[in-house]
Simulated assay, not measured.
Amino acid sequence: MKLDTLTVDELISLFVSFSEQQYPLTLNDEGGKAKQIIKKRNEIDKELRRRGIAARLELTKLFTHPNTQVRINAATTSLGVAREPALGVLRQIIKEDFGPFRLDARMTIALIEDGTVNPT
Rank of each mutant, 00 (worst) to 15 (best):
I38R: 12
L111W: 12
I12P: 02
R106P: 02
F18P: 00
I72V: 15
V117N: 08
A75E: 04
T77C: 01
H65Y: 07
I94W: 01
T77G: 03
L90Q: 11
E113S: 01
Q36A: 15
K35N: 12
R49F: 00
I72S: 11
V81T: 05
L25T: 02
P100T: 13
I38Y: 06
Q21E: 13
R49V: 00
L27D: 00
V117S: 06
L6F: 14
A74G: 03
N67K: 12
Q36P: 07
D9L: 08
K2F: 06
D45K: 07
K2D: 12
E47R: 04
L27T: 07
R51W: 09
D114E: 10
L90H: 10
F15Y: 12
I72F: 06
E113T: 05
E96H: 12
V8F: 01
V89Q: 00
F15R: 03
V8S: 04
K2G: 02
T108I: 10
N42W: 05
V81D: 01
A110S: 10
N73C: 05
L59S: 03
G88E: 13
I94C: 10
L103Y: 12
D9K: 14
K61M: 01
A105H: 08
I109C: 08
A82D: 09
V70I: 05
V81G: 02
A110P: 00
G99S: 15
I12L: 06
S17W: 05
L14K: 10
R50S: 13
F98Y: 15
A82H: 08
I72E: 09
D97H: 13
L14G: 10
T60F: 05
L62N: 02
S19M: 01
R83Q: 09
L27A: 07
E30L: 14
E20K: 15
L90N: 10
L48N: 08
G99C: 13
V8K: 06
T64C: 08
L79G: 12
